[in-house]
Design a protein around this nucleic acid. Structure first.
Lengths: 345, 345
DNA sequence: CTGAAAGCGCTTACAG
DNA sequence: CTGAAAGCGCTTACAG
């Protein structure tokens, strides 16, 4: 079966009628429609997407750009797979399909995105891992393609974004630790230019200030956002002269590496050092002593992200009257044993 | 900037010449080409992919179908991200782009694939996680779309596949353990219909036979291919009446859960129980005692997979004269401490 | 070296 | 309710 023309010939009707029948248009004789549907099924006909796209001006595909850094691969980040699920639950309502666009390690993300936009194989895009300065945002604004950034950035104009509540995590982490008597609170922050690092540290500093604790740059440990990074953070923490009594982590997997390094040094979280982890994750469940961390639903985040994106698209905005508001996604503190002690003296 | 027509008008030349200039055809005046390129850059023109695809009959996009099962999400499988890297290194040579097609959890993979094929947004496909009976293979054969299966199946005709050497892992695992005096060797096998389970178990039984050891079905522990599954396997192993002295795992993450369960029971791998893990992985490196496992390069596998796929595509087959051969990907044994003892008595 | 024209496979006003 | 025709944005023989 080649195209609609062959199908129409086979049925001995016009291609227009075939098209209308297949697309569920109302002005088609029910008997005709049945015949068309049956023949299409039998001959395995389905409309060529390029033909449809060209005529209709839309692809009905949404792209999620991924940066497959070596770091991501090694840590096997579950984040995107979880979010994907939520996205699809929303997109499927409108017969939109999601494709993931993995930017190769050795290609500049900006160039990659440019090419993807140029090809127009998606109607809209989601970008993530936004950096402090992120040219992708201007690129997308200029291309006038609907998009939502998962993560804030200092770049661009008034684009739509969603982001995790990094400031809330930092603030609550500090508050909690200070309440338990800590004053030397370290932070494992990302070594990259990723924007969440700035937000997190700003909030951390403000929280300290609120409590009248002077900021000590020596307590900012720059490591990769990974299990390895957590190990490294543990290593560096042990070498700080006046050793911190607590540490707040900025990535879920850091806790695993940190625990390992601490164990090597005979240091017990929740007894010798207070540890506040980041996102609760199946793998962090097994840590002993249990980790104080923050809970969120990846799927719900994905669904919200999907709705926000659709709200930016003229064709779907009507369904999402809340509009394309920027949102900070809350995380709920889940107390564990890793910081369950009060500092005395 | 709308389309090639506007660009041509702006330059006051024909759209044919613009197209030829942009596509690097030789029969264009160099001066004309420069002008066209400059104007395209300035006005931000790029060819609409639907128009190109419709005319040329190809999309220049390759799809990698993913099944985002809850299991995959929770285990944050790094497998595909690693393979992706290798795939792209090959595809980029031909200006082909890779998109990942995540099949939603709640959708039938067969229906999903059918839709993706129908839309024709890719020129070729890679499917994975093949099951013993896998209708996707017949679907793709019938649709006459080039594809390679990552994983074997009993379905379909003479399609092209690549697969890990599960039989080799099972055979070498058994040989190694028997040489160390073991005769009751358990296997943690997948509870699903995934084809690799059949291959693995066949090879396991053959290896036992070779050594004259009777097969005991009680030693086949069916669990999920995950960290949780490994924990569960440990749990069930402890309840087997005549306890096995060794276990071979069929998934990389199982080792982590298994170690955890064993630790709870005070059983030390490499002393009380011999453990042979599956694929070596950053996370399995940290296990104590070190795990005997099998090494392979995800990136190399991806590159080979990419070349195999291109060899099945008429437009690229010339570049890959080795043809679309089926391949079993070898894994190299990396001895660890987890099975480093000899059974006496 | 360039232009005019055909046509890829669809959908959709429009006419009847 | 159906058909004939236009046209989405390209690329590519073909003619000059």
């Amino acid at each position: 079966m080649k195209g609609i023309r062959q199908l129409a010939e086979h049925l001995d009707i016009s291609i227009g009628t075939v098209s209308r029948a297949l697309n569920g248009k109302p002005d088609v004789n029910e008997d005709t429609r049945r015949r068309v549907l049956a023949a299409a099924e039998e001959l395995g006909y389905v409309a060529n997407q390029s033909g449809r796209s060209l005529r209709q001006g839309v692809t009905n595909v949404i792209g999620l750009m991924l940066e497959v850094s070596r770091e991501t691969v090694e840590n096997s980040d579950d984040f995107f797979l979880g979010v994907t699920d939520g996205l699809q639950s929303v997109f499927s309502r409108h017969k939109l399909d999601l494709v993931m666009l993995p930017c190769p390690d050795d290609e500049d993300p900006h160039e990659y995105l440019k090419r993807m936009v140029a090809r127009r194989l998606v109607d809209a895009l989601i970008i993530s891992a936004t950096r402090r300065t992120d040219r992708r945002i201007e690129l997308l604004e200029k291309a006038r393609i609907p998009f939502v950034a998962l993560g804030r950035s200092a770049s661009g104009g008034s684009y739509t974004w969603m982001d995790l509540d990094f400031e809330g995590v930092a603030a609550r982490g500090v508050d909690r630790l200070v309440a338990k008597g800590h004053r030397r609170i370290a932070v494992a922050a990302p070594s990259s230019d990723i924007n969440l690092g700035y937000i997190f540290l700003d909030s951390y500093r403000q929280a300290l200030k609120r409590h009248g604790i002077p900021f000590d740059p020596a307590l900012i440990i720059r490591v990769k956002s990974s299990e390895q990074g957590g190990y490294q953070a543990g290593h560096e923490l042990l070498m700080i002269e006046e050793r911190p009594t607590a540490i707040i982590l900025i990535h879920e997997l850091m806790a695993i590496g940190l625990y390992r390094r601490l164990a090597e040094a005979g240091i017990v979280p929740g007894r010798d050092l207070a540890v506040v982890g980041f996102r609760e994750e199946p793998r962090t469940h097994f840590l002993q002593p249990s980790l104080t961390s923050f809970r969120m639903s990846l799927r719900d985040l994905g669904a919200q992200l999907g709705e926000t994106l659709l709200a930016t698209m003229p064709a779907y905005a009507d369904h999402y009257p809340q509009g394309a508001r920027n949102r900070i996604w809350p995380l709920e503190l889940v107390p564990g044993e890793s910081d369950a002690f009060t500092l005395t003296g």
